[in-house]
């Protein structure tokens, strides 16, 4: 293991059969970008891969010309991950399409236990048409509940096939179980949203061009956003409590925060959040520290009104800072 290498971000796309996991994985692949990623799927055939990009295929592993790898889940997840582990030095990101009966938490455990991996998002897709029926199915009830339990973020699919009332109804069923998890309706307008969430690992704005990816600025027009700054040191416990309490409305939050209890050598902290996935880490190295003179700067976006979050941050001393 290369000590200097950053851990590989590990993302799980879960959800029940027919919820659109494969098409979401395909969208994320299409968005691509510079990240060298591996995608683990049941069926290579369901992926939209240009055959001219395939460099080689041996056993479970298909190598692509852009440095990415597709790995088959044939034989099970343990064997697939053991096979993929041979390529960890050349990967930035692993994306797993969980089977419809798996518990995404048990899959995310791979990233929790292996120091070469870092837990990323658990996205759970929910089929708006069939969700209620699935919840009522005694063969599936525990499976669905476990998937709901594991989500950092819900994406509702097939919104074009249901009424607004049905979307509200399903949203209420989900938030009743998981009040801290954002629920986003995935429609045509927002189809690149998931890949944006998966690949945006920058600590600072702008949202619209994260990490060299090319997202349409219009993507963000359907969202509420706030940008705030504060020159005073921030109370870590209160900050953590606020972002946790408001996690249902934080689709993406990030920033550089000067915590009052940080040691000088720790520098500033980076806050990254998508729904229930909250990460607060120290700056990786002083060289990368922007000169912000003790100022904390944060931004957040949501499909919901962010006024309650803005009010909460004000209690810490943050004020709006539109020029971030």
């Amino acid at each position: 293991m290369n000590a200097a290498k950053q851990p590989i971000i590990f993302t799980v796309v879960g959800g029940f059969l027919g919820a659109g996991k494969t098409s979401l994985v395909n969208r994320i692949l299409a968005a691509g970008g510079p990240a060298r990623f591996a995608v683990l799927v049941n069926d290579f055939g369901a992926l939209n891969i240009d055959e001219s990009l395939i460099l080689s295929q041996t056993g479970k592993i298909m190598k692509l010309a852009n440095g990415c790898i597709c790995c088959s889940l044939a034989g099970g997840l343990v064997d697939a991950m053991l096979e993929l582990a041979k390529y960890y030095d050349h990967l930035d990101h692993i994306l797993i399409e969980a089977s419809g009966v798996s518990n995404p938490s048990r899959i995310m455990d791979f990233a929790r236990i292996d120091g070469e991996l870092r837990p990323g998002l658990t996205i759970v897709l929910v089929d708006l048409v069939h969700f209620e029926e699935q919840l009522d199915n005694k063969l599936l009830a525990e499976t669905i509940e476990a998937q709901i339990e594991s989500a950092d973020l819900f994406l509702l699919t097939k919104s074009d096939l249901v009424s607004v009332a049905q979307i509200d109804h399903v949203t209420a069923l989900l938030t009743g179980r998981q009040p801290l998890v954002p629920v986003v309706t995935l429609d045509q307008q927002q189809e690149d949203f998931a890949s944006f969430l998966v690949f945006d690992d920058t600590a600072l704005p702008p949202f619209s061009k994260p990490a060299g990816h090319h997202h349409d600025d219009r993507l963000l027009h359907s969202f509420h956003s706030i940008a705030m700054a504060c020159d005073l040191p921030i109370d870590r416990a209160r900050f953590s409590a606020i972002v946790k309490d408001h996690s249902a409305r934080i689709l993406r939050g990030k920033g550089v925060v000067n915590f009052a209890d940080s040691l000088p050598e720790d520098g500033h902290s980076i806050w990254q959040q998508t729904g229930r996935l909250i990460e607060i880490t120290n700056m990786p190295s002083p060289d990368n520290t922007p000169d912000i003179s003790g100022t904390s700067r944060i931004i957040a976006i949501s499909t919901d009104d962010l006024a309650p979050l803005e009010d909460a941050f004000r209690t810490l001393g943050f004020t709006p800072a539109p020029n971030i």
Binding site: L82, D109, I113
Partner: peptide
């Protein structure tokens, strides 16, 4: 400090060496 489902621990918080579920077995086989 490993707090993962499937890594069983004793009362003192030390792993007992009993591993269950995929992730823990993966780590051993890795």
């Amino acid at each position: 400090d490993t707090n993962v489902y499937g890594v069983l621990k004793d009362d003192a918080g030390k792993p007992t060496g009993e591993l269950m579920e995929m992730a823990a077995k993966y780590m051993a086989y890795k």
